[in-house]
Nucleic acid binder design. Structure first.
Lengths: 244, 244
DNA sequence: GAGTGGTCTAGACCACCAA
DNA sequence: TGGTGGTCTAGACCACTCA
């Protein structure tokens, strides 16, 4: 009897197609906001049926990496204003009101990665990083003290001026100026008491309970690109989470 | 020219199949842990192709309502120990260690729903509810003070004895004793200072920052069935969240 | 009307599991 | 060996968008 071939690295066709599509996204063949080729075109390019391409795109769409628009095409997802608020800024007013969101840049400095940051961002300890501090204001009241650390190597164009220009929409800045799109994030939440410096900046008494949100964001291919620490006043806001 | 029919309530076939399957789950035709009929059988029952049934089941599987096992069949999902920890108890040790999880029931009383609880659980204000208080201990140290409120009408069998019997695994109790399975939850997180009573129970100084997790859990068909408030000490633990 | 994504079908073969 | 889910194909038709 013929021995069935063993495929130690077997992967379904549609997974392989998905990887190829991800490669094209990484290489910048299609940039955020742009349409990717139609399902039929991709099927022809890869020599598979339209249904197989469709299943690969299904997964990318489920991960919010691409967006389908019936009758028009499939587009590389972008961080629109709404999306960022919905997906990456989960703090909402407890009374349900919609608020004016504003931000105030405190500093933007070049420095070196600590051992911990280097580990998280998968860079060498002591590598050059950009260290940003800012306040986020809801309805003109300071609510979040944010600290953002980026590897300089990948974020050359990031300066205080650029950040002001983008009005603090960091993800849109990364995307439109650097072609870096964050597709995934991990967060660790704890409750802490405000230290003296934070208390002053947020206009609180030291020791006031704050929600601490530590976030690492990843781009295509699970590459960590940004570390963030947000200290949030939650007397009138809450972090919303939902899961199935 | 013939006018195309307008279908104001148009739904894809697979969505209709999904609804029918959900109805069968609600009615208890298949209970947690049990296998549902095969894709071919369901296709025959509903008079559609196997591929259409498959797409309906795909969505239920994505929502963790059923679980596929290749070569065996498709099963109604259950709250196994691991799952509950992974999906509904997102507090993990900051140093990554695995810990002994234990709990201590403080009280289990019959009372009446406040206006707020009634609104959240979609019952009449003043309806009978069960009010449970307990401590969750990690490695024998109290970390979470939990309060759970359930509508009595649906949770008749829940008593202090039963809870002890299930060693505090509430979701397993609901599922195995009452056939109620939670499929979705919403949480609101804030940071607060411990009040006097909480401080005593958790062995802290009043005012210690605590992570407050308010959760509403839903069963099939988006019906709210449980409200919970957990006050968590996060000096050695954190709430983990991940999103795409 | 041409082109795109969205749905549905029918049938083939594969991988896995259990008896 | 038979039944299950998992993958893949080819082709049909529908719904939507835009020129």
């Amino acid at each position: 009897m013929i021995q069935p071939l063993v495929h130690p690295s077997f992967q379904p066709l549609y997974q392989q197609i998905k990887s190829l599509l991800t490669q094209s996204l990484i290489s910048g063949e299609w940039t955020p906001g742009e349409a990717i080729p139609s399902e039929m075109e991709l099927a022809a390019r890869f020599g598979v049926s339209q249904g197989t391409v469709r299943k690969a795109i299904d997964e990318l769409a489920a991960e919010n990496i691409v967006v389908r628009r019936q009758g028009k095409g499939t587009y590389v997802a972008t961080h629109s204003e709404d999306m960022v608020k919905l997906r990456f800024l989960r703090l909402v007013a407890s009374d349900g009101s919609r608020e004016l969101l504003d931000n105030k840049l405190l500093s933007c400095e070049r420095t070196k990665a600590t051992a911990n940051i280097a580990r998280i961002l998968q860079i060498k300890a002591g590598s050059a990083v950009i260290d940003i501090k800012r306040l986020l204001l809801f309805s003109n009241k300071p609510v979040i003290l944010d600290r953002i650390i980026l590897p300089s190597a990948s974020f050359k164009g990031v300066t205080a001026e650029r950040i002001e220009e983008f009005n603090g929409s960091m993800y849109r800045l990364y995307e439109t100026q650097l072609g870096i799109r964050m597709v995934r994030a991990e967060e660790k939440l704890t409750a802490i008491g405000a230290d003296a410096e934070t208390a002053v900046l947020l206009g609180l008494k030291p020791g006031t309970p704050l929600l601490s949100i530590e976030r690492t964001s990843y781009t295509y291919g699970d590459k960590p690109m940004e570390w963030r620490l947000g200290l949030c006043l939650t007397d009138q806001h809450h972090y919303f989470n939902q899961f199935e």
